[in-house]
Design a protein around this nucleic acid. Structure first.
Length: 149
DNA sequence: CAGCGGATCGCCT
DNA sequence: GGCGATCCGCTGC
């Protein structure tokens, strides 16, 4: 089992957020975003990598948080095997999912249930930096990328 | 070490 | 038909 401390996230704000996959309404791909809070939304990016979101809004309100990066705190050996390298194990959205073994098999599941992955509170960050979201050209005024230690 | 481009595919235009 | 909520290897300084 691999455990990471999440150090980087991005928020996506639902129908009002032009940068969200759900901005244009429900599609087969983004359907999990319209589920209950705690629903897992996985999508493939650039044809190669998986990215993992946790839905935070109520049913029908497609808000979610993208897990963008973290540091491995348990299961380093497994993470290294999955990543095929010993550094940069989870410092990016695709790397994070690969290190954790998250694929589209988890799409539309929920966190903290058997057969999916779990989230639990960690140490309160002492400082949180906010910046525009990475790779996003829309809604740049929304500082919804959060980095912390 | 920074910069560039290839890989690769589902979804929207 | 084109482009992304990306990563990695290779190039050239």
């Amino acid at each position: 089992m691999v455990e990471v401390r999440i150090t980087e996230t991005e928020a996506y704000g639902g129908l009002d957020d032009p940068a969200s996959h759900a901005a244009r309404g429900r599609t087969p791909r983004n359907q999990p975003m319209f589920g209950l809070a705690g629903t897992v939304y996985i999508y493939r990016i650039y044809g190669m990598h998986w990215c993992a979101n946790i839905v935070t809004g109520d049913l029908g309100d497609p808000q979610a948080v993208l897990m963008r990066g973290g540091v491995v705190t348990k299961g380093n050996e497994v993470a290294v095997r999955r990543r095929g390298r010993t550094v940069g194990l989870a410092d990016g959205p695709g790397k994070l999912t690969q290190a954790l073994g998250i694929t589209d098999a988890f799409n539309n599941s929920s966190v903290n249930v058997p057969g999916s992955f779990s989230l639990e509170p960690g140490k309160e960050p002492s400082e949180i930096q906010q910046t525009p979201r990475i790779g996003i050209s829309k809604a740049v005024d929304r500082l919804w990328r959060f980095c912390y230690a």
